[in-house]
Design a binder for these strands. Structure first.
Length: 684
RNA sequence: AGGGGUAUAACUCAGCCUGGGAGAGAGUAUUGGUCUCAUGCGCCGAAAGUCAGGAGUUCAAAUCUCCUUACCCCUACCA
């Protein structure tokens, strides 16, 4: 990496909102990108790290239909779950957004208008299968039928499922095609679509890949080969309601194909960040419209072509005819991972194979996961998550890193009144040790610069081993009997070493890093201290440190496995039976309250702000009753409400509970007690 | 089917691009020793591999070329 500070756009692939990510998804893009972004910030680089949920597309629309929910509601709900999980995983996004924001939608539409203006979009009519029952043009995958080649049933519209055959198909070729959603027979209809003229960009894309020396070799040859074969034109519109309306004339009932709008989220997410978080729209230009900016994409191996050919192609089509300072920056590099397997098997939602990121947090502390995932990051080939490896890695963390820091700090606690002892003259062994300390950050930086996160972390562990070796060589617990100063000298260096570990581990396991800094009693946080702050004189002689506490604990892997099994079983049960125990019911605190005030809420035609007398005080509830009750109908009524619901802001008003009402179709009826009871009465 | 990858000790992997310290490295597990400041931890040593199989190029091949086998990805809406 160069000496000059550079600007970085760091991105991770956009998770599809229809599923909770699993460990493989996480290490493939999200966690890797986070480590990198944290590292850059620690180095003091200018970084914006963004991603978001991919909200649109057929699967969401179909799932919403079966759940009788509006697609938007389902997508938004899932988005919030995912966003919350990423936060709990300590993913340091500057903006984690989604593709259904006004900023994104507007950006996408304007983007394609430009692309069309620049002459990269043409129209074409095709024949496609349409399901009358579902009112849907069926995507290839949603058509099933009999393979015309081998006669196997269950062939899909894109490929025959029979492994013996496996031929590529188009939906129109299938015999007896059926809609995969409802099973009825679809009909052939003609529909018009808008196409992206990739062949026109062929040469330009080839140059881009050829001139980029930094992208990984395998990605490079893959792309060049694919370009050599010819990049096909691609339809960018779909006949689907759930998506971003296509901005082309005559395309009023079309959406932009998810793939062609979700990637633009990399751009719109920064735009949104600049406008909302930074309150400075120019920050967007300074990142995206500066060709010196390094845009880095963390993706899985299945996404290489898309990020190195399709996405840059879109950018080029947009940039054509633009002034230099208006052009959007092309990708600088991609870091692609292979896949993570689970005990030699593929992660599979339907078969329940694997660990999902919500489950992981329930069975082991976060940093153990972060450490383990990066330590085994699938950089060269598919890699299995193995319980035995997980156990190994927990032990490494504990025995090598945790133990070194702990033995150093407790010694200082016990023998030197918790004050960093004085350093005396370095001998040869000390010098050797100090050289390691002074060169380590450069070494790790080198690997991180090459996106070898796994190697970087492994080198840090090796480095920590050096600490233990040094301690053993010196054996200060012997020296101290004759020469306290000389023993103190050793621990001065070891404390400096512990400090270096806090810095180095910062991008990988930030919680642990923070804990070490706390134990060393440092006021500044990691980024203030900085990547280059490692030095053998960093901690001053006499500085008081805190009482040591173990950083990690060993876990019994069988316990963890069992916990996971229980979690999975519990989920299954909830899904299947929907029965809850009496204990569960008792969790609900339902009470009677008297409505003492009712008022409307600005910009919300269905909401009332209710003031409630709860017997022991008053609270505010927001209820969606304005379409069903007049204000005076509610005033002074005794109503039932859920008192221990998490408070939530609705249209800027904090609602501290939920009013209960019977709902059927368009009738909404609030629940009031049959007899006169005082506010505060509990419902059992 | 075409294209891109991967195959190295019991296990997880490094080395391969750019062939060369005539003994192929590390961690874990196994095993011998040792320390006792520290969390059943640390440190030192041993054993363990026809580098997927085959052919070729070369003074020299895990490394370059070709063929075969197995698995993964893309082409073809899962990181």
């Amino acid at each position: 990496m160069s000496e000059n500070k550079r600007k970085y756009i760091v991105t991770s692939a956009w998770p599809y909102v229809n599923a909770i990510p699993h460990l493989g998804n996480l290490i493939g893009s999200v966690l890797s990108a986070d480590v990198f972004a944290r590292f850059l910030r620690l180095r003091g680089e200018e970084v914006v790290f963004v991603s978001g949920s991919d909200m649109h597309g057929t699967p969401v629309a179909v799932a919403a239909k079966t759940k009788h929910l509006p697609a938007e509601e389902l997508a938004m709900k899932n988005h919030e779950i995912i966003a919350d999980l990423f936060q709990r995983w300590n993913i340091s996004y500057d903006n984690y957004t989604h593709t259904h924001t006004p900023t994104h939608i507007k950006f996408v539409q304007e983007f394609y208008v430009e692309v069309q203006k620049n002459g990269y979009i043409f129209e074409k009519e095709i024949e496609s299968l349409y399901c009358k029952e579902d009112n849907l043009f069926l995507p290839d995958r949603f058509v099933e039928g009999i393979c015309p080649h081998c006669g196997a049933s269950g062939a899909r519209g894109d490929q025959c499922d029979n492994p013996e055959c496996g031929k590529l198909l188009t939906p129109l070729e299938l015999n007896k095609p059926k809609c995969a959603i409802c099973g009825s027979t679809p009909e052939i209809r003609t529909t018009k679509h808008w196409y992206m003229d990739f062949p026109k960009l062929q040469e330009e894309l080839k140059e881009l890949i050829e001139n980029n020396q930094i992208i990984p070799q395998n990605a490079r040859s893959m792309c060049l080969n694919s370009i050599e074969e010819g990049i096909p034109e691609r339809a960018i519109t779909r006949d689907l309601e759930w998506g971003i309306p296509a901005p082309f004339e005559g395309a009023e009932d079309k959406s932009i194909y998810v793939w062609f709008e979700a990637v633009l989220g990399y751009i719109s997410a920064v735009k949104e960040w600049a406008e909302k978080n930074e309150n400075d729209p120019k920050r967007f230009d300074s990142f995206w419209k500066d060709n010196e900016t390094n845009a880095v994409y963390f993706i899985g191996k299945d996404n290489i072509i898309f990020h190195l050919i399709v996405f840059p192609g879109l950018l080029m089509a947009y940039n054509a005819n633009k002034k230099e300072e208006e052009k959007l920056v092309l990708p600088y590099n991609v870091s692609s991972t292979e896949f993570l397997m689970f005990e030699k098997d593929k992660f599979s939602k339907s078969r329940g194979v694997g660990i999902w990121i919500n489950e992981a947090l329930e069975i082991a502390p976060l940093d153990y996961w972060r450490f383990n995932l990066v330590y085994n990051r699938p950089e060269k080939s598919d890699t299995s998550f193995l319980w035995s490896e997980f156990e190994n890695n927990i032990n490494t963390l504990n025995d090598i890193i945790g133990n070194f820091i702990h033995r150093t700090l407790t010694f200082i606690n016990n023998k030197f009144e918790s004050k960093i002892p004085e350093k005396i003259k370095l001998d040869e062994r000390d010098e050797q040790f100090v050289v390691k300390l002074k060169t380590i950050s450069e070494q790790i930086e080198f690997y991180l610069g090459q996106f070898e996160l796994r190697k970087a972390l492994r080198e840090i562990v090796e480095y920590a081993r050096e600490g233990n070796i040094y301690l053993n060589d010196k054996a200060p617990w012997h020296i101290i009997k004759k020469n306290k100063k000389a023993a103190g000298h050793v621990f001065n260096l070891c404390a400096q070493f512990a400090y270096s570990l806090a810095i180095l581990l910062g991008p990988f396991i930030p919680n642990t890093s923070k804990k070490i800094l706390e134990l060393l009693n440092l006021e500044k946080d990691l980024n203030e201290l900085g990547w280059d702050s490692i030095d053998e004189n960093k901690l001053e002689t006499g500085k008081e440190i805190k009482k040591a506490e173990p950083l990690f604990e060993k876990l019994d892997i069988d316990d963890i496995k069992e916990k996971l099994i229980k979690i999975k079983q519990k989920k299954k049960r909830v899904k299947q039976i929907h029965m809850i125990s009496y204990e569960d019911f008792k969790e609900l605190d339902i009470r009677i309250g008297k409505i003492t005030n009712v008022e409307g809420i600005e910009n919300a035609d269905n909401l009332y702000k209710l003031t409630l007398d709860t017997g022991d005080g008053t609270r505010t509830l927001v209820a969606g009753l304005a379409q069903h009750y007049k204000e005076e109908e509610l005033l002074n009524k005794n109503i039932a409400f859920l008192a221990n619901l998490e408070p939530k802001k609705l249209r800027g008003v904090l609602s501290e509970g939920m009013l209960l009402a019977a709902v059927k179709d368009n009738v909404v009826s609030i629940l009031t007690p049959d007899k006169d009871v005082d506010p505060g009465a509990k419902i059992e």
